[in-house]
Design a protein around this nucleic acid. Structure first.
Lengths: 342, 342
DNA sequence: CTGTTAGCGCGTTCAT
DNA sequence: ATGAACGCGCTAACAG
């Protein structure tokens, strides 16, 4: 495992110039003789020289690297569908902007052992994008106070060095529920995510707003808290329908829960939307493939990823301070909702 | 944006020892006085010192980083379901072993511009895991000849520095087709992936083996080549059934294609498995949620990821040479297959 | 325009 | 058991 290639010194020697000069042409400095530049460039080309980014990072004190930290990447099966698209957006944009992407997953337990700043300092990433994080994760608040720029996905917190990117979850939930209301439903259940998810709180707000807008009374017992997973959806409807048989429609905070619910209803011999109208949230790939196809609220996942990197880089390179970016959701009406019939 | 923390020098000063000594205790050297060690450790603790991994990488000429290069990460929608789980496995194991994971996506065009070795040398990763790569991607053969260790996912090539991890695709296809045969089907179509996918070639082999084993004649016109995507599945059955109405069962090289086919058949008023028995490949999450639930061949995706990292690290740290790791697939019988009825 | 000189933070001989 | 000195490959003043 020795040298994998020539160093800047080898190039300098071969070109008959100093190291500095080589460095200059490589870094687009203008004050270098065109002829020298050509000569150097030719040697670089011939030797197949590639600058050692580690050495450069050391001296520049910048790694051109962004860290993507995900909480419990593996465990949250629900997350996959959402995370992957965001990841793609992040990766694509980072690459475009000349940054490398380093992936980390943390768990709440790991977060107790290593502080966020230790974590970041050790890795020397220039900035961080965090996703899948809960409000009560230890890192959450460390991040906003950290001195290194960060962007949170789906957690609306900002500071001088911390921005966020999220869907407009309030609006998303509202249009979902308004859709149900417009179809005549008046007893609308809500299977939410866990309370430590910022999005869950926002979607609850959207739910109540929609009800209020239609003059329908909010009944807190119509709200069930799950964990975004399929099983939670099944349990959610089951619980809701048992206690409140008058419920004719349910809004779910994730497609996966909605799907779990549909499966459950079907397994009990029921039919969707005949027996219950259902709206999900996310528009994951499965949504359109379900039988019946799921009516849901689409999030711009890929764009969230891109936007996160854009925001991060603006803080990194232009010194901008933290801000929030909110992306619009979109109602996708498919087959799991139908007008209320007594 | 200057110092984010103390350097080894600060620690040395504060502890009243030399840099060397600090370095020694940090790197588990034994020849250091227990009392000095304690003193240093205490200072390290108190100052919250974190070694600068960049500096260490420079001097050690190792980055403790593995690169994950994926071909067309974003574009291959079919890949998501497969890639993500593998990614999780890779990430988890890399983290366990103390390596960071850097994510890259390449495209065939990008591969024409930058050679693989340039790519790797620039990033200074210690090793590479590649996935989603085609046999005709430029990188494919550069990788096996490269001087830095690598592991290919799903491409059975080895060299001194290159290993691979894959499912036993021949066996997987064989058990799928044997299942169909055992149900009495004799006219079995095969919607394969594109020919530049190693797995496609292998699955074809498994398909023909199974037929041969049952004394059923192989008809090359029963094989359709798609691109692993949903649409390809729909087109595949359509084409196959039109030309060969006698076909009573079809094996698909990906679940997504199988699902596309089911959707197509249903949209035409047909029924699965009554009108056509179907077996997929992968066992993605959708498979069990489909209506009817998809019979398929499960791949150990997460384990493939873990295994890839294990293999890579054995080459990296023990100097082992390239080898192949083949994981067993498993037939998951669900609802899309039924015995042949005249 | 170009070369010389200093480091960046750390691991590593080689003395002591 | 410990420290001084050197160098990893590169960028950035500072002369000329």
């Amino acid at each position: 495992m020795k040298h994998l290639g020539p160093t800047i010194r080898d190039v300098a020697k071969a070109a008959g110039v100093s190291i500095t000069t080589v460095s200059r042409v490589l870094n687009q400095y203008t004050d270098v003789n065109p002829k020298t530049r050509q000569k150097v460039l030719k040697v670089v080309e011939k030797m197949g020289y590639q600058p050692n980014s580690v050495a450069r990072s050391l001296v520049m004190n910048r790694t051109q690297t962004v860290g993507l930290v995900v909480s419990d990447l593996t465990k949250s099966r629900s997350g996959h569908h959402f995370l992957f698209d965001v990841l793609c957006g992040i990766n694509d944009r980072a690459q475009e902007m000349g940054y490398d992407l380093v992936l980390f997953s943390t768990s709440p337990t790991a977060q107790k052992k290593t502080t966020y700043m230790d974590f970041v300092r050790q890795r020397r990433v220039d900035g961080v994008v965090m996703m899948g994080i809960r409000l009560d994760d230890p890192y959450t608040h460390e991040v906003v106070e950290a001195s290194i720029p960060s962007v949170l996905i789906d957690v609306p917190l900002t500071s001088k060095t911390c921005s966020y990117v999220a869907s407009d979850n309030v609006a998303g939930a509202r249009i979902a529920v308004e859709h149900l209301l417009s179809q005549g439903h008046r007893h609308i259940g809500f299977v939410n995510g866990h309370q430590q998810a910022a999005v869950a709180q926002e979607r609850l707000a959207g739910y109540t707003q929609a009800l209020a807008g239609a003059g329908v009374k909010f009944i807190s017992d119509y709200v069930y808290y799950g964990n975004f997973e399929q099983e939670d959806g099944a349990q959610g409807v089951q619980s809701l329908k048992k206690k409140h048989p008058e419920i004719s429609a349910v809004f779910f905070a994730s497609d996966l829960m909605a799907i779990g619910a549909i499966k459950y209803i079907q397994s009990e011999g029921g039919q969707v939307p005949k027996d219950l109208s259902i709206v999900g949230f996310d528009d994951i790939a499965l949504a359109s493939l379900m039988q019946p196809a799921l009516t849901t609220v689409r999030q711009m996942r890929y764009e969230m990823g891109k936007s996160a990197v854009d925001t991060l880089i603006r803080m990194l390179e232009n010194g901008e301070t933290g801000r929030g970016v909110v992306l619009p959701p979109e109602l996708i009406v498919r087959e799991t909702t139908q007008p209320f019939t007594k």
